[in-house]
């Protein structure tokens, strides 16, 4: 799977994030990785599950992606800082002016919205006053109409809100060269995350399995199309697995029509590249 363009994964404060929608879709289509949407607006963050870009990737997923040479990791903070501090004067000016322009548009839109709100409240007040006094409302209506017309004459409020959102750019990709500060491919300890790697390599998709009490829920295809087939937990090769965990996991997985999957890789004793295969076991609770 040699994708034409490596996918840039930004490492920000220990999280692995992908901001580019194209990269996200490429990950999803080609690398069995769907990640978790974590983006929300900085002010008024949503408190529901409807989040947007960027997506966050788990460290072991990133590891697997690096191993399969699909993506690379960038220390985004450093890249950002160095790129913005070492801009040549022209681009610097362009950047500053673009920021200024955005700010101006934002202010404009904000003022418009305020004016609109004020006019609406004014009309409401007028309406109340008119209702109480039962006066002839022709002039009030006229002002309200004119206010509405005024707001309609300008770019519609919906558009203005889009520009307002644009104030915080979702990515600084335009100013930062894509492979600046690329972190060296870090060979993690191969034991950890080997199950994730193995499942990704065999074409499974994985989402966080916290809801079902496991590390991953494993899908045979895109999670939008399939139900999960397994709830997977990874264990170290020499790790003691409490029997209660197996009972509980197997019970829960079977109750939600899945199988409990455990697996791990034997740590390779020889330092060469040959790694021992991942062993997996799927467990079901029979007495139900």
């Amino acid at each position: 799977m040699e994708s034409p363009k490596l996918i840039r994964i930004a490492n920000i404060s220990g999280r692995y994030l992908v901001f580019d929608p194209d990269a996200v879709s490429a990950l999803r289509r080609q690398a069995n990785t769907n990640g978790t949407l974590v983006g929300t607006t900085p002010q008024q963050p949503t408190q529901n599950i409807f989040l947007g870009l960027p997506i966050e990737l788990r460290p072991e997923e990133v590891d697997a992606l690096i191993r399969t040479n699909v993506a690379y990791v960038v220390d985004d903070v450093a890249a950002h800082k160095s790129a913005l501090q070492s801009l040549d004067p022209d681009s610097r000016r362009a950047y500053v002016s673009s920021l200024r322009l955005r700010k101006q548009t934002a202010q404009k839109v904000f003022a418009e919205i305020n004016a609109q709100k004020a006019s609406i409240t004014a009309s409401k007040k007028n309406k109340k006053a008119r209702d109480s006094s039962s006066a002839v409302p022709s002039t009030d209506l006229g002002t309200a109409d004119s206010g509405a017309l005024k707001s309609d004459g300008n770019p519609s409020p919906r558009n203005s809100q889009v520009t307002l959102l644009g104030v915080t750019p979702t990515s600084s990709i335009n100013y930062v060269s894509p492979d600046a500060n690329a972190l060296p491919e870090e060979p993690r300890n191969s034991e950890k995350g080997s199950l994730c790697q193995f499942m990704l390599g065999s074409g499974y998709y994985m989402t966080p399995g916290l809801r079902f009490g496991s590390r991953y829920s494993v899908y045979p295809g895109d999670p939008l199309r399939f139900h999960a087939h397994f709830m997977a937990n990874e264990y170290g090769w020499e790790e003691e697995i409490p029997i209660l965990d197996i009972v509980g996991g197997g019970r829960l997985a079977t109750a939600v029509k899945k199988a409990f999957l455990i697996g791990g890789r034997k740590p390779s004793t020889s330092p060469d590249m040959v790694t021992s295969p991942v062993r997996t076991f799927s467990i079901e609770w029979a007495g139900m």
């Binding site: 916290l210 079902f212 996991g249 829960l252 109750a255």
Partner: peptide
């Protein structure tokens, strides 16, 4: 224990 362990136990019991 990880959080997933607690979730698993609680969910099994709440079933």
């Amino acid at each position: 224990k990880p959080w997933s362990w607690l979730h698993s136990v609680v969910r099994v019991l709440s079933h």
